[in-house]
Simulated assay, not measured.
Amino acid sequence: MASSSSLYWASAEAASPSIPPVPEKRIVVGCGGAGIDFLAEVAAFPKPNEKIRSTSWKVQGGGDAANALTCASRLGLNPRLISKIADDAPGRAILEELKADGVDTSYLVVSKEGNSPFNYVIVDSQTKTRTCIFSSGNPPMVPDELSQASLSSALDEARFVYFDGRFTDTALIVAQEATHRKIPILIDAERPREGFDDLLYLADYVVCSAKFPQAWTKAPSIPSALVSMLLRLPNVKFVIVTLGVDGCLMLDRRVEAEVPELDEIEVDSVVELLKQKIDSKNTIPTCIPSKSVMRLRADGIGKVNGRLLVGTAEKIPASELIDTTGAGDAFIGATLYAICADMPPEKMLPFAAQVAAVKCRALGARSGFPTRTDPRLAPFLC
């Protein structure tokens, strides 16, 4: 029997014949955080010992993995989530919201005791920034809570596995099984964590926060840090670093190009040359790729063969920018879709940036995640 979500996508696409069909292989598995966000928008961030009123507020599901998979589901993928919550009121709300968005929650561990994860988010409408105060779930997830039968079922027919860096002990078990089955792995590298390196070494694709590459590699610049990451992670095909309003930067490894006649160029200089090609008048997301495969050198670090791509972000009018909460999760969800749809990098980066930009026009992460049929995505899907 067809699920309600699959019937929705079929009817939506029938009404919008210009939208390409969803990828044939679209089951993705995510392992990581699921929680509740308590969001309050304020006119300005409070000073110490000050009482203020919110201008608007919202309570909705959160957590990096849960958000990214929710976004992926709205774009047309069939996500399964491995995570842990408690059997409390927030936990029941988490389950209900994920199910309503088409995320398979069969693999969530529900603890009879403890509490579900939650996050206080204060959104400053003046500076367009947000501050998060996170409380992790208790007790934390441990590998024994995911049976071999559940793990096997979760990975059955999966096109991709995604990790947000939480529950690293359990995540490593899932990643090892995915590697054994030759299922590609994408990792969201937000910040270094205990045990995270073991997981990262199994990755096929990495999407980083702006601070992670240099924090992890100690390289002097972001471009040189990306070179260092590919040298330290030989299985990784590409690494993307998201830079907020400054867009993103991608280093795409090309191992088939190990030939001596490749031009050798210092990586920072290539990035600067690509940035000079950005049209400052263009307000929509674009991609500026290097024209060919090069031997990219980071002085004191080493060399890799690949292509560099600079992605721009949408220039959102101040009157439309509401909240950046979940923008990174939207980018991840769109990247998962793009890989499943075999989008080339030149198309993937603007698409992911546009999905993130649409999200920023609403308070909270999930309020802003677009559906596949959103007309603002049409130019990036066709």
Rank of each mutant, 00 (worst) to 15 (best):
Met250Leu: 14
Ala356Glu: 04
Cys340Ala: 15
Gly328Phe: 05
Val255Ile: 01
Gly311Ala: 11
Leu262Met: 07
Val293Lys: 00
Ser367Tyr: 07
Ile288Met: 06
Arg307Trp: 01
Val239Arg: 01
Ala352Leu: 03
Val267His: 09
Leu274Cys: 08
Ser367Met: 08
Asp279Gly: 10
Ser367Cys: 07
Ala298His: 02
Ala365Cys: 03
Leu243Lys: 06
Val245Glu: 14
Ala352Cys: 12
Cys248Ser: 15
Ile339Arg: 11
Glu256Ala: 15
Lys359Glu: 15
Pro370Gly: 14
Arg253Tyr: 09
Pro344Asp: 11
Leu262Asn: 13
Val270His: 00
Ser292Tyr: 08
Phe331Glu: 03
Ser269Thr: 12
Lys291Trp: 02
Ile301Ser: 13
Gly300Ile: 14
Leu251Gly: 03
Ile284Arg: 15
Ile339Tyr: 12
Arg253Phe: 06
Leu251Phe: 01
Gln276Asp: 05
Thr312His: 09
Ala338His: 08
Asp329Ser: 07
Gly311Glu: 07
Ala313Gly: 07
Gly311Ser: 09
Pro317Met: 14
Leu243Val: 03
Phe331Trp: 11
Met343Tyr: 12
Glu261Asp: 14
Val355Leu: 03
Cys340Met: 12
Val255Tyr: 00
Ser290Phe: 02
Ala353Pro: 03
Ala353Phe: 09
Glu272Thr: 06
Gly302Trp: 12
Arg297Pro: 00
Arg366Phe: 07
Pro350His: 05
Asp329Cys: 06
Pro317Glu: 13
Asp252Ile: 03
Lys277Val: 03
Cys248Asn: 13
Leu308Asn: 02
Gly247Ser: 08
Glu314Leu: 00
Ser367Lys: 10
Glu314Val: 01
Glu258Gln: 01
Ala334Asn: 10
Ala352Val: 04
